[in-house]
């Protein structure tokens, strides 16, 4: 790929105080974002947290209710038209034509994205080869399986060699093997200088991003590199090893200062609340266990992104979640 690093901008996206409401519903609330050029930037958040709405505003497809956006040095939505040919956008829902073949879809998108007529055939062939569509190029897009559809979506989104790529949950319906494959392609693109903003709610994907932002109910609740975000939770994750995890879990329900307790195999993973002192929580847990006479081993472990996600998206006032 010959995508060049965006000329003269090292910040691909900058948004300040971004907000969007639909009637009374606040979908995005005062979000500040800075996405450095040339990186894979993850956008993490539960269902309905405003990921798609934010991406649409950044693309100029929705008018923000509040705030300012600058993408690739252009002001959005005012200069959105000038931006179109420089960004690629892969929608959350498959948005190519079910009743056109793989090749026809690529040729169509090439034409409307302004790929030069003389180059189109070569570019389409190149993408068919790169995304391994050679023996499916005549298949109707609607008959492709989920993973292949997403690949076609990506191929179409990058056909005009955009500097910036928005991918809205590109892999939520894709098996792990195809997902790995898909991410391979993303890093290839990033290597060639493309900035990628990808929304997801999968932890293993978030883990692979250079940086990520976590959105919860329209609010930006955390952002940074995965290591920074996990590091910020140092000390707050405890592992409870026990022979009777279900009973220990019940015993921990009443303990104050715990944000979540989930069972992982025969162990329990405990996340302490934001304001709570982890050491005190540890003592409380041991006391609670002592009362019930259950044997368990409590140790502090390194936090991972799942803990970050839970800590960021779980309001401290809610009771700890009990594993189902």
């Amino acid at each position: 790929m010959s995508a060049r690093p965006p000329s003269g901008v090292d910040t691909a996206i900058r948004a300040r105080g971004l907000g969007k409401h639909f009637g009374g519903l606040v979908a995005v609330d005062r979000v500040d974002l800075t996405v450095p050029a040339g990186q894979v930037y993850g956008f993490l958040g539960p269902n309905g947290s405003g990921k798609s709405t934010t991406i649409r505003m950044l693309c100029g497809l929705l008018l923000p209710s509040a705030g300012e956006i600058e993408v690739l040095g252009l002001e959005v939505p005012r200069q959105a038209e000038a931006l179109r040919s420089r960004v690629g956008y892969m929608t959350q829902k498959f948005s190519l034509f079910d009743d056109l073949s793989v090749r026809e879809n690529l040729e169509f998108v090439a034409a409307i994205q302004g790929v030069a007529q003389a180059e189109t055939a070569a570019r389409v062939d190149e993408l068919l080869a790169r995304y391994r569509f050679e023996d499916r190029e005549r298949q109707l897009a609607g008959t492709l399986s989920g993973g292949w559809k997403q690949r076609l979506g990506l191929a179409c989104a990058v056909i005009h060699r955009p500097e910036l790529l928005f991918l809205d949950e590109p892999t939520s319906a894709v098996d792990p093997e195809s997902r790995r494959d898909f991410w391979e392609k993303l890093f290839e693109l990033a290597d060639a200088g493309t900035t990628i903003m990808v929304s997801t709610h999968l932890m293993d994907e978030a883990e692979r991003c250079h940086r990520l932002a976590i959105l919860d109910r329209g609010r930006l609740v955390a952002d940074g590199t995965p290591a920074q975000l996990a590091g910020a939770l140092a000390g707050r994750t405890l592992l409870v090893e026990t022979a009777t995890p279900r009973r220990v879990l019940e015993a921990l329900v009443g303990v104050a200062g715990l944000l979540s307790v989930v069972q992982i195999g025969s162990n329990l993973r405990v996340l302490t609340g934001d304001g709570a002192d982890p050491r005190r929580a540890l003592r409380d847990i041991e006391a609670a266990l002592g009362e019930t006479g259950l044997a368990a081993d409590v140790t502090e472990v390194a936090s991972n992104l799942e803990d970050v996600f839970v800590a960021a998206t779980r309001n401290g006032s809610r009771p700890p979640e009990r594993a189902p």
């Binding site: 497809l61 038209e81 179109r84 829902k93 948005s95 034509f97 998108v109 994205q113």
Partner: peptide, 13 residues
């Protein structure tokens, strides 16, 4: 309805 429009309007068309 089929979602094609979101893709179309995100292009220079």
């Amino acid at each position: 309805e089929r979602g094609n429009m979101e893709m179309l309007i995100a292009t220079p068309l």
